[in-house]
Nucleic acid binder design. Structure first.
Lengths: 192, 192
DNA sequence: ACTCTAGCGGAGGCAACCCTCCGCTTCAAC
DNA sequence: GTTGAAGCGGAGGGTTGCCTCCGCTAGAGT
């Protein structure tokens, strides 16, 4: 397997400040935001996020001038991780690599509830994230298709939307969610 | 008592008033609410709903004392329709009947975005709706399983959640949504 | 240690929404 | 037609969230 070392272009939606206390606050805000977005979707209250992070509302606005900036930062973080994971999976078997990546996609996208909207959003950062994600996962899917493992009458965008939709749904537990996801993925396998 | 028609127990979440003007307002509110819930999810603004219906906010509250009453009424309406549809499909082929019903489920549930939560809600009306829906669609699924068309290692609740999840996602158009849905349903087919 | 500036918190003005309450309107029964 | 009650609309008080602004704090460079 040729390990394709194409450059990892990190997407950055806002700059982490230099000063120590400021950097700490920045991180706390991102973590709090991730949590809040996961819980309440993209409409989560900004004041609540500041409260969770233990900082004033002013600090939130200084780091992230708009709700969109904040959300994009959380989202970009997760996309960057997924890009990295895709590279690590490059030497696995085609179908296993694809499902493993989709699993990470499903599990890591903490902003679940909001991702569905983000997948269709038109802003610059979101577009960059989308491209980045397609560039990362798309080849895994193409490889599975070429190996005759995945059906050809489906494109990668559709696959991601399918997984995102199922993942965003409430299940009794993770095991149930995984079972349903794997059933749906059975439909993605090429029929021989 | 002639055999064929078993009783359709209609679920009623709130009473339609007798007076003519009042009944008109009631209907307008339900229609506006269906629209607003479809657009903004279960958190849609009640004042906006009253505005859309062209009635005062007071009228909304008189008919539906709480947000939940209103949402339940819209939801119950749709469930009742799905129950009726299931009965009409009773004489189709097993797999076709099942997919046709799921299609209606996917398409008719205008409250899409909110259904996922409703499927897990514990309130009395929601529980009744859930039971009603399982009673309607469950047999279709069981029949498909017995005919060897649907896999047996899945239950009806999981199937509904899968469909609801995919349906709630944003797609480019209905055709794309249907394609993805049918791919996922391929995974539900029994492997021979 | 000193300074000076980046960074901080939160008060406060504004808007949206929730829900109640009550004086006015309109239906329908007689 | 009359009339009583059911129904109506929306003002208004409370709450929550958005975002700005500014006097204070504390880190970083010297």
């Amino acid at each position: 397997m040729t390990a394709p070392s194409f450059p990892v272009t990190e997407i950055v939606a806002s700059r982490r400040p230099h000063r120590k206390d400021a950097a700490r606050n920045y991180d706390a805000l991102l973590a709090a935001a991730r949590e809040a977005f996961a819980e309440h979707g993209a409409e989560a209250s900004l004041e609540d996020i500041a409260r969770r992070a233990g900082v004033g509302i002013g600090t939130l606005y200084r780091n992230f001038p708009t709700r969109r900036h904040l959300f994009e930062s959380v989202y970009a973080d997760e996309v960057n991780t997924l890009v990295r994971v895709a590279q690590e999976l490059a030497d696995q078997e085609p179908w296993e690599a694809l499902t493993a990546w989709l699993d990470r996609f499903a599990g890591y996208m903490v902003t679940k509830r909001a991702v569905r909207e983000a997948l269709n959003d038109e802003s610059e950062i979101f577009a960059a994230c989308r491209d980045s994600m397609y560039a990362a996962g798309g080849p895994l899917f193409a490889r599975a298709q070429e190996a005759g493992e995945a059906r050809r009458d489906m494109d990668f965008v559709e696959l991601l939307r399918m997984v995102a939709g199922i993942t965003a749904t409430a299940f009794d537990d993770d095991a149930q969610r995984d079972r349903v996801l794997s059933i749906a993925l059975d439909g993605v396998r090429a029929s021989r």
